[in-house]
Design a protein around this nucleic acid. Sequence first.
RNA 1: AGUCUCGUAGCUCAGUUGGUUAGAGCACUACACUGAUAAUGUAGGGGUCGGCGGUUCAAGUCCGCCCGAGACUACCA
Length: 1142
Amino acid sequence: MGKKYQEYKQLDLTTINKDIFKYWEENNIFENSLKLRKGSKEFIFYEGPPSANGQPGIHHVMARAIKDIFCRYKSMKGFYVARKAGWDTHGLPVELGVEKNLGITKEDIGKKISVDEYNAACRAEVMKYKDLWDKLTKEMGYWVDLENPYITFKNEYIETLWFLIGELYKKGLLYKGYTIQPFSPAAGTGLSSHELNMPGCYRDVKDTTMVAQFKIKTDEYTNAYFLAWTTTPWTLPSNTALAVGNNIDYLWVDTFNPYTAEKVIVVLAKPLMASFFNPETPELPMEYSHGDKVLPYRIIKECKGKDLVGIEYEQLLPWVKPQEKAFRVIAGDFVTTDDGTGIVHIAPTFGADDDRVAKQNGIPPLVLIDKEGKRQPMVDRTGKFYSIEDLDKDFIKESVNVDSYSAFAGKFVKNAYDKTLTEKDISLDVEIALYLKQEGKAFKIEKHTHSYPHCWRTDKPILYYPLDSWFIRTTAMQERMIELNKTINWKPESTGTGRFGNWLENLVDWNLSRSRYWGTPLPIWRTEDGSEEICISSVEMLKKEIDKSVEKGFMMENKYSSSDYNSFDLHRPYIDDVVLVSASGKKMFRETDLIDVWFDSGAMPFAQMHYPFSCNKEELMKNFPADFIAEGVDQTRGWFFTLHAIATLVFDSVSFKNVVSNGLVLDKNGNKMSKRLGNGVDPFEVIGKYGADATRWYMVSNSQPWENLKFDLDGVDEVRRKLFGTLYNTYSFFALYANIDSFVFKEDEVPYKERAEIDRWILSELNSLVKMVDESYNDYEPTKAARAIGNFVDEYLSNWYVRLCRRRFWKGEYTQDKISAYQTLYTCLEVLSQLMAPIAPFFAEKLFLDLNEVSKKYKDNNQNPIGSVHFTEFPTVKENLIDKTLEERMQLAQKICSMVLSLRKRNNLKVRQPLQKIMIPALNEEFISQIEKVKELILSEVNIKEIEFLSAQNNVLVKKAKADFKSLGPKYGQKMKAIANAINAFSQEDISEIEREGKIYIDINGEKVELLISDVEIVTQDIPGWVVMNEGAVTVALDTTITDSLRKEAIARELVNRIQNIRKEQDFEVTDFIIVEIEFNHLLDETIEQYSEYIKGETLTKELSLVRKNDIEVYLGQQITKPISTIDVIEGVELAINIRKV
RNA sequence: AGUCUCGUAGCUCAGUUGGUUAGAGCACUACACUGAUAAUGUAGGGGUCGGCGGUUCAAGUCCGCCCGAGACUACCA
């Protein structure tokens, strides 16, 4: 006696999850799955490193499920899929976490806490939740190598980054420049956009704003001005350009300066006229004196913005002379007519847009030269205009108008920065406004409330300020990046062409610098004057340079001399102690910046291998570029970009060939999950309750990965019931009978042609499914695969195949038909376990092992049953088993059954009541032959004796004609509606005519129109005298006559049913034989006589007898007070019955 | 503010190159079925396909504008 299929009391996904997990661990299934494929073609996958200083959430299950699915799939397709885990360990959140834990600020480092301690704290902080992450990874069934992860803070990792920086440096793609960044003068530090997005940073403030007059250099008018609005008048002295919108209309207006009453011509955007001039008073006399309420005006000219571009104007506040080419009108795409004047004041040193547009148009920024000879904006780092004494003497002589500037020099641009001032004191903005008012260059001054960012530390307003930064010249390779991007397969495509593509089109240079502490240090050392510099690209190089420095006496010792990477630390502040010696013998200090953490993760293809120090280019290329990566869509401009940029710049290659960007996981109401709202879902709880398989399946099947998922626990439960519950039931059914019949798949496969129609059908559907699922996985469409599998299990396998085949399994001898049924069902289950293995790895494993342990169909090299479904080859479609006509006729059978059941229901005829026949109008010969092949299935399913086909010529049928719009539309266009109405109104004679002749002529508004049979669709609507139903083109009529014989048969079936119920109630085994005694009743007489054998056969009854009630009450010779059971097979009559095992 | 995605039944989602009765599952109601039974079947209610306009004989589907949700980028005179 061989092994039996395992049978279960009920489905318990959590236990399966745990058992299989244990089985995988104990038998090293993951490692072995890798070993098995070692040497095969590689499928390269990159793991995007998460940061372990936060707890994992349910959305991580989503992202990791996607990754796991395709890695498992490719592994089953025969690829070797290495999966190295990784940890992102640098960055601001880590620093903030440490500071919060230790209750310190950056200033305390080296004072309250030693540098070593701080450094150690960062290392600990960043791995705070590593255990939790590992736990989730394992419990959710994500197969990834957690033993040898790459970790971005390791010296080896940093060394590769230095190498890459070195490569960029050599290619001239690295430079130092400045950008306009948020800067807090009060805190003396730049702020990241992350810090600016902290809650409460943007606050409404009331500032003095003004519209200034910029005098136009033109021979045409002597007193014409551009009007430009600013909310920060302190930036006006730094103005070097004005921006207009190319397609905006501008007006030249003759009017007066409201403060000086001087006659002027002003230029402003047409749509904004009404904010300055009353449109109802265009004809006021041109007279004005200061204080008059209404400003008279005359429009003298109109032009487009592009006509203004290039016009020069005089410097508004000629305190400092800029370089050439300043003070021109330029075009700016950001100019609107929402507010202001439609002409934008440009101060390139204090606005990001300003800086960008100025650079594009060759407009110089307004800069000062300080005492140290450095170029500076007009405002210093404490937030005040440079004092005269802080400036370079030569520069003052050449470029500064000391007389007019000195009244303002040294003043703070915001009162908040000046300890001696309060908000009530006059601000610099007001002073400048008043000054310009006197000069006749202010057109309008008013208070204005707007939202302005504040520093989260000091609560004081920030400035946009030019700060030194190191940049990667990504714009130099922009074209190449765009070109390479077009070769990447994005899922969804729109993310690649849209979000990512646009990002590349509008690429700016990558600002690498971060003024932080915990991160990869920028490996560039410079002399103080910046004239000499060196870029260190390896630890080896660092060592050598330090040796030189020690020799020179700049450093005492070389702490980086050992070859043991654990003996030193490339992080700050240790690395800052390194002073190098320049070619000319000067001291060089490290540029204090750190590298953007995104560079860390974008460099992982190389750094995870410690390229080129621990592997050569050939080895690298075996793992580059990736075939597949997946991450949240929020990484488009994060990881996806940095991977792409570094690969393009350094290796002129894509970094990944296929990328799936998944959407967000929201709560069930569509809100973003957040700690604040407390609507987060704990992944451990979900997996604990429903198991990883249901969770994963739900996530993948519910919506496409790239759409946002509204996570609803009820949905997970539905998946458990509907998919896993149904599949479990199907397996249980199989196991129950296969064990009884000892089916272990030892027989040869029953030849396809000898199998029952329904077996061939389910095999056809199964192979169609294999094809579909394989294509979907291959196309990175897991949702399509999951839905197709779910549909197959529920609709085809469980609710049709098994339902219709039940008796083949429990009835009769172990014949070829029975074996065929077992083999067919077994194959379906086995293939399903393989198809679903990527998505539901635990359940699939369980199902597969339960089957294979018994049948041993899959064996390893030692002839033992193979250890895992994940070791098997993904099923390949057997095209020759796919029979589309068969699939179609089975669909037809299902449709007809459904219609008959509906008719029965409507006429209150139970299925147990056999009926004589159904009639179906035949559409054509093929229709008949299709139904003939599935006739038996239909008849037994709906308990009918025969099918009669009615010929189309049968004139009993009432028919209905409908227009075929698709065929008529293109032919008749506008006449469509009239024709459709005419066809609807066809009489039975009209329909006969077109059926007979193949065409008919109709009259539409006096015009003769020829209709072909192919232009109309004819269906049977009714068959008078019968109960009829039609759906689409199929019509079914039911004969509802119940003859005496049919009634008897019905009673027999009722009896069988009751006996079966009692068997079950009494917990008899399905194989037990019984003896049945039923109380005598003359209504049953004939039925029993006629159907005795049938009843006995169905219920495994040895003896069936009608006896007197008294006799029934004697059981095994003992008098009992009441019969074992009573039944009511005939309406209103209750009979005693006694059933006992033989 | 810009870019992208999404908006179809109470909920989650399908919906082919535009073709005329817009589908499925869940939930709800009623009735059946019962050797798979914590399953299943049948029937029923439930829709201005986010809104407005356009193209077309014909629009859930194509185009424009708007509204709403979300993400990213940026933060402006």
